[in-house]
Amino acid sequence: MNIIDLGTVPSSSENYLTFIEQMCDTLELDFGSYASLNPVTGAVHGYANYPNAWKSHYIKKSLHRIDPALHKAGLSIAPVDWQRFERDQKFKSVFFPAEDFGITSQGLTVPIRGPYGDRGLLSVTRSCSTEEWEKLKRHIMGNLQTAAVHLHDSVMRTNGLIGALGYSALSSREKEVLQWVAAGKLQQEIGDILAISHRTVEIHLRSSRDKLGALTTVQAVGRAIGMGLIHPS
């Protein structure tokens, strides 16, 4: 994914917003918004590229108190298409006026769960035919999951409590695999060296990237070297 790595820029609302903008561009989405609830302080962090008029309306009417995207989606482990929400009064009070501001109710929310009981929600919309929407979902869901966790972890790390706890620890195998990547070995070669399948190498790389808050393996290697977890080759 060709979007900014939040691990390389200062944590700020502008950068989170840039991240959301770039994610929408790359994944062919109209709007994106992120919200998280700090389990200890109860504080809500939110970032969105919605039109300002809609943001003002949302805040003025305190729609965050009833928005099903915030209160229902977190109950699922999988992204929740808004079609799944009951068309009750709460839904109507949020999604009907949104249409008046040019925001379609064709969207979905990716629920994110962090290691400390922290939870986040990344919502995206796209105005298009149902057929196109289904096709787009299949195409972007993996990248959307990765983007959601990257953004959530970055927001959580800047937040006092969880920030102090830092990154999730890498396993010996993950460090070993990153060390071989740093030495210029390809996945297949690393699999042969360690006598594991190349897919097992891939899952260790995937996990290392997510733990280090990196979007690419190159960034993960750089960060692991920077943190003294592996040696530069």
């Binding site: 290691p115 990765t146 966790v149 396993s171 993950e174 899952i203 995937r206 996990s207 990237r209």
Partner: peptide, 13 residues
């Protein structure tokens, strides 16, 4: 996991 930290990924359940 022999005491090793578990893997963690957005795309692994």
């Amino acid at each position: 996991l022999d005491g090793e930290p578990p893997l963690r990924s957005a795309r692994v359940w």
